[in-house]
Design a protein around this nucleic acid. Structure first.
Lengths: 240, 240
DNA sequence: TCAATCCCTTTCGGATCCAATTTGCAGTAC
DNA sequence: GTACTGCAAATTGGATCCGAAAGGGATTGA
């Protein structure tokens, strides 16, 4: 029986998901022994996993002190959006002439679902009820699924990898649940998706590029508003 | 006395430089024991270093078989140039309004030197003499220095990191020395640098962006010509 | 009261040791 | 001659062990 993956890789994947998903908040100090007893392995594979996370920029490595989950600054966040904007624009332009009818049909299906979820979210936001996390996650997934079709058609694995790496600098989902006026974001996102899909449909790579870029940048602007109102409060847990 | 860096990090840095510099050719299999006796350490830090290289995409990790230096395919190379083109365009646009007189002066100094080196290289190419490696390296460094000013002024560390990561997928410098008709590239590069500098000088971020993008893309086109004539011969050493 | 020093605990980095997997080769059956 | 089996060498993955660095607290001295 072939193993096909090492424990270090498994651990790295799990921690990666937990960090980008927000389950492990920024600033957390990761102790090797904790992780080794949690995953029921020795510290050796744990350290290899941590090296990988460090190379990916998810944690910072202080020699002889430990690793801590990196917290992202406002400027880093803005930059990540800039990178995403450029690369998604590129991918969208490249994908446009390669789109096949079934790809477009898939985009339509996803977009329809996305529209429904958007309505539900706005409904919820207007009613003032507490946010439903699962609904939000679904909305997010539909959002990503839309872009994933584009990435798949574009066939630019490097671009996809980098853009998705930048995408994950999201500070977790709770940011999005923070303010009710994100209503505007929901509606705009939906409209922009449709505009992008239409531009692709008529085969205008240029237009699709511009729209994709603006789409990401407008998300950026709204996120910044949220961060301001949240007070950019990056409280940093100490080493203890 | 504080160590300030671990052996794993040191080893990773050295190997990184050797791989991107071409000293360790693509396809090479890296044996843990070889490296451990070369660096006079045990295999533990070596493996951590290899994990980092794997996370950076410089080597591929096959469980229970070993690591090998990744060889870059033509499509990967093309993609890397696309990424660089977008990100350098972005950086150039952002840098334009932030340029101070002394920054511009520095660009002029570098560009002047770059022009001289370009002339020397073209001279050498026309004379049919064997390429002077050090001259070429100098030319390359001046080329990079020009762009580095832009990156420094732009103050976009993430963009800089990604773009430079894509820049290093260069298959070493010998590619550039392969054909004499790169003459054209030398001249064009020089002219494009000047155009970019002038666009920045008049404060047109839009123009600078477009010029920077075309600059990188034209390098890409010429590289592809070279690869075609070279026969894309990616001979892969076996596992032995 | 406050600062410097020593020591003890915690935690990390690295070395060594052992188990598991792969691989090459010899031998054998057909 | 070819394909298959089984063993042995090479190599990796992981566990355990040890020395060293960092941090905290008590003691001492001014």
């Amino acid at each position: 029986m072939t193993t096909l993956s090492t424990k270090a890789d498994d651990i790295a994947r799990v921690l990666e998901d937990e960090i980008v998903g927000g389950a492990i908040p920024p600033g957390t100090v990761l102790r090797q022994e904790n992780l080794s007893e949690r995953f029921e392995v020795s510290r050796t594979p744990v350290r290899e996993a941590l090296r990988r996370l460090a190379a990916l920029g998810l944690v910072s490595f202080e020699p002889n002190r430990g690793v801590r989950v990196r917290s992202i600054s406002a400027s880093e966040l803005r930059e990540a959006f800039l990178v995403r904007a450029e690369l998604e624009a590129l991918a969208t332009e490249v994908a446009t002439p390669k789109m096949r009818p079934d790809d477009l049909a898939e985009m339509d299906t996803i977009e329809r679902r996305f529209g429904e979820l958007t309505l539900e979210l706005r409904e919820q936001a207007r009613s003032g009820a507490p946010r439903d996390a699962t609904l939000f996650v679904e909305w997010m997934q539909a959002n990503y699924a839309f872009h994933d079709v584009i990435y798949r058609v574009a066939e630019l694995p490097l671009v996809e990898r980098i853009a998705k790496g930048a995408r994950r600098t999201f500070i977790g989902d709770r940011v999005w649940q923070a303010r009710a006026e994100l209503d505007e974001l929901y509606a705009k996102n939906d409209l922009q998706h449709r505009a992008i899909r239409e531009a692709i449909g008529v085969g205008s790579g240029q237009a699709a590029r511009v729209l994709a870029r603006e789409h990401v940048l407008s998300s950026n602007r709204l996120i910044e508003v949220v961060l301001e109102t949240l007070g950019a409060g990056g409280r940093e847990p100490g080493w203890g």
